[in-house]
Structures are given as C-alpha cells and as structure tokens.
Amino acid sequence: MKKELIVLTLFLSNIFYCYSNTVSFPTINNFISNSYKDTTFILKEKDSSYYHKIYIEKNRKSNYYKLLTNFKFSKGDLEFINEYYKLFKKRSAPVKKFNLQNIVKEWLPLYKYKDKYYLYAPSDWGNRKMITNSLLFYWYLDGPYPCILTSFSKINLNHYKLTSKDFFDNSDVYVKPAKLSIYIIDLKKNISVWKYWNKKGEYRYGLFVSKEHAKAFDIVVNYCKESKVPEFDFDKIDFKKLLNEK
C-alpha cells in the first residue's frame, strides 16, 4: 500500500502541473494559411469537391506555429493519462523522479527538403516528444502516450542518455525505445539527434528542435480539408555525418 501511495503521489504531481496549463486542442482544419505571393507550393490538387495542397509556410504569425508548439494537455489527454496510471498501478510499475539536468523538455521533429530543414504540419497529426522528470511522452493523433523513465544521465554538455519502459503491448518497438541517446548538435538553436535502440539492439535516428526555437524554421504544411492524405516524403538525412561533424 505504501508503494502504491508513493506512485500515486508522483503521478498526480505530474498531472497537476499539466492540468494547470490545460487548453483545448484545436483541429487541423482550423489552421488554413493566409495567401501570400511568396508562398511556395510543392503540390496542389483541386476539383469541385477536393482540395489538397502541400506548401511551405513562412509566416511566423501563422497559427500552425501555435499548434505545433502547444504541448499543453487537453481534458481528453488527462483522461487518457489517468487510464494509463490505473494500468501502471495494476502492473506495479515503478514511477521514479529524475534530475533532468536542464535538458530541454519539449521537442519537435525536423525534416529535410532540398538541403533545408523544416518543421512539418502533417495530415495525420503527431510525432512530438516531451520529457518530464518521471515520464517520456510520445504524441500521436489521439493524444500523448507515456512511457516510464527508468534511468537518466547527462554524459556531457551535448549528450544525454535515457532508458524507458513501455508497460503496454505494442508492436512498434522503435517509436517507444528501450534506450535513447540525445546528442545536442546545435546549442544555439537546440537542435538534437535522437538515437533510438529497441529491445533487440536495433536502432534508428530522428532530428528534433526545441519548442522555443521552432520559429527558426519554415513549416511544410500538408493540408486537405476533406480527408486524410499520404504524408509528404522528405529527403533522407545522413545522421552519422551530422554526428561526426559535431
């Protein structure tokens, strides 16, 4: 019973922090860019009942920046998290607090297109990351998904190591890794390479930027009001080269 009360206290402390910053999460269809003469369209498809466009958003006042950088939990998100907590408790999952050593907490993915890096407003929303002192959140279309931090260490100014555990069955072993290294390759803009390991020891990479530096980059917007559409196919990033250069 004492152990369960400790877990409850730690978890509710995270929930209280998030709830104090709660706002309703808007839908993607509320964010249509204004028309500008310098807008670069990558794709335009239109008929009497269908309008799909992929374009580069350069207006820093665009609502897309507000949407991408909104990490506040909605009421629905908190309900999901509460259900996760019940499962944590049922499975006796240990929730501990770690000193995060001033690491950036909220991250957005970066993508490469024609030798430039961009943020991305996808058709199917998701792929952001958030680190708290006890949980590692992965954002999907239906909301945040928490994994429990099992270790955290700062190797040096540019390198952090984390391990986390997914206490729920899921076949996507890469998205929620067993081990993660975060390499800060640009301290000024807080750009980082994330190297994920799964339980089998296989790994892959991702490029991220802190929420606070999101406006340093234009956004590739994949917009279709009528339906979900295939995601834009960005260029491949040579992550090993990035790490070697830094």
Rank of each mutant, 00 (worst) to 15 (best):
I54G: 03
W107Q: 00
H52L: 02
F16V: 14
E202S: 15
S227R: 15
T40W: 02
I6F: 02
I6E: 12
F208K: 03
K97S: 14
V220A: 02
P177K: 01
S164Y: 12
S13V: 08
F217R: 00
S153N: 14
Y85R: 00
D124A: 04
D186R: 06
L187Y: 08
L243R: 02
D142L: 13
L12Y: 08
Q101V: 09
L242T: 10
F88M: 12
D186W: 03
E231W: 04
L119T: 01
K215S: 08
L5G: 03
L12V: 12
S153W: 04
W139H: 10
I81N: 03
R91A: 12
Y111R: 01
D124V: 15
Y205I: 03
I185S: 01
G206C: 08
P177A: 03
L87Y: 12
D172K: 08
S227W: 07
Y19W: 14
K246V: 14
D172P: 05
S92C: 06
L136G: 05
Y203H: 15
Y55L: 12
R128N: 02
P144W: 09
K154F: 03
F234T: 01
N99T: 11
F16N: 11
Y160F: 15
T163S: 15
K96W: 06
K161R: 10
N34G: 13
K228I: 10
Y65A: 05
V220C: 04
K246R: 10
I237V: 14
L68Q: 05
I237Q: 00
V209Q: 00
Y145P: 00
K97F: 11
N70I: 06
L141Q: 09
Y50H: 09
K129H: 03
L243A: 04
D238C: 07
